[in-house]
Amino acid sequence: MARAILFLATLVLASSAHADGGRYEVLGDEIPKPLTDQPGDPARGRAIVVDRRKGLCLLCHSGPFPEERFQGDLAPSLEGAGDRNTPGALRLRLVDSRRVNTDTIMPPYFETTGLHRVAPEFRDKTILNAQEIEDVIAFLATLKTTGGSR
């Protein structure tokens, strides 16, 4: 039994090795541990979310960004994302949404495996780096429509 658990633990660690040099560990529906020691900055996160070349979020999602014209409608609104998800759940969905839904159209923001025909300038690079992921999570966690916490 102990050996089986050790074996499983090794598998989890092995599968969480990452090309970016960072590592993450998926537990159930979450990546509970932040990717960096430095806490995410919500203001920087918001800037990434509305940047159509960096975060790309508003190409598919809409959200509470009154100054942003032309928001997408291909994915759920980001409004209330902090009510619906723990930071750990947000982290898994940003890092590699394929782990939640194999047919997702959400790009894997912090994973480079299982991709095909990536353009040379983007090959083996993640869409966001670890700190940027944490910044976005910190911002999304502030998007609450209810007063109380989850």
């Binding site: 032309f70 291909l74 990536v118």
Partner: peptide
């Protein structure tokens, strides 16, 4: 139908499954 690129999207994901939707301001 095969997802490609760093953004991991297939032609079908947009032009079959989501035609009529909006990618930012653009009608798919």
């Amino acid at each position: 139908e095969r997802p490609i690129g760093q953004l991991n999207l297939s032609c079908a994901a947009c032009h079959d499954a989501r035609a009529g939707g909006r990618l930012a301001g653009a009608l798919i």
